[in-house]
């Protein structure tokens, strides 16, 4: 693919890239790891195993997983309809999917809180059913579903569009029911993209602050997410403690990113031909 005659501009563009990455990404993140290492390993362990820290990390992990799960399920349905069942106004709905990417998280946060508060449009019917939406872990999940929806839809759409419907016809002609065709032909093809969307939504949810901080209620041990606890520690001038929690979150982000890169490599490898 690449020609033998090299194009010009490689040293300069690589220089700009490496300098940018070093200054913007590497230097700050190594400062974090460096600060965390100024804690002795016992102090580090004591910080990250303190009950309040464990509770916040557990809450962040749990709500991110739940939010990404709901977003993935809803995203599959929405992506399916957008790709397979044209309807009037489809392009408008399609543009609206990106709203959570474009809307500032603080705006999303205060809006969802107002909607799901016990006096809000959606909070009142839920309260009548005995469900507490805002100021509970469920509220955090609702905010993360909002945030995660476009990740799921946007990773599934191109894969769904690239699937040849004739494969399903072939399955039907061989006697497969619609359910069999969906679960045994379509779903396996969608799994890598589906997992990628899940992982992206999960990673975003794990570190989310703006849309969560308003709706969560921020009660220590109950509705305090890890990024908020970092903020609290920082305000109390406990920089090392904040850095310790941040290091745990950063480690999780890094693992997720590696997983996402593997998933994306998997989903772009050519699968066996349908014949």
């Amino acid at each position: 693919m690449k020609g033998s005659r090299p194009l010009p501009g490689f040293p300069v563009s690589l220089g700009v890239t490496v300098t940018g990455v070093s200054l913007v990404v590497l230097l700050p993140l190594s400062a974090l790891v460096w600060t965390a290492t100024t804690l002795s390993s016992e102090a580090f362990r004591a910080t990250v195993t303190a009950p309040r820290v464990v509770a916040s990390l557990g809450l962040s992990l749990g709500t991110a997983a739940a939010g990404a799960t709901v977003a993935s399920a809803a995203g599959l349905l929405i992506a399916w309809v957008l790709v397979r069942h044209p309807f009037p106004g489809r392009s408008l709905v399609d543009s609206l999917i990106d709203l959570p990417f474009a809307l500032p998280t603080a705006v999303a946060g205060i809006t969802l809180t107002t909607l799901y508060a016990p006096s809000g449009w959606l909070g009142r019917p839920l309260a009548a059913l005995g469900v507490k939406a805002a100021f509970s872990p469920f509220g955090i999940v609702l905010a993360l579903v909002f945030l995660g929806l476009p990740f799921s839809v946007r990773t599934l759409q191109p894969v769904l569009a690239a699937l040849d419907p004739q494969v399903e016809d072939a399955a039907a002609s061989l006697g497969a029911t619609r359910a069999q065709a969906f679960f045994r032909i379509l779903l396996p093809e969608l799994v890598p993209a589906w997992l990628t969307g899940f992982a992206l939504a999960f990673a975003r949810g794990l570190g989310e602050y703006g849309s969560v901080v308003f709706i969560s209620g921020n009660m220590p041990m109950r509705t305090e997410v890890a990024p908020l606890l970092i903020m609290t520690k920082l305000e109390q001038y406990d920089t090392a403690g904040a850095a310790a929690i941040a290091t745990v979150l950063l480690g999780a982000s890094f693992l997720l990113l590696l997983g996402i890169n593997r998933l994306e490599a998997w989903s772009s490898t050519p699968r066996r031909s349908p014949q």
């Binding site: 990455v21 990404v25 974090l32 570190g207 703006g210 970092i230 941040a246 990113l257 996402i260």
Partner: peptide
Amino acid sequence: LLVTLIDLPFAVSPVVAGLVLVLLFGRTGL
């Protein structure tokens, strides 16, 4: 590796992103 490092801010919590700047340039920072 460079591509992964460019992607990294996507996965990092915004609060962590702010924190690292405090660690570098804050009163008690590097």
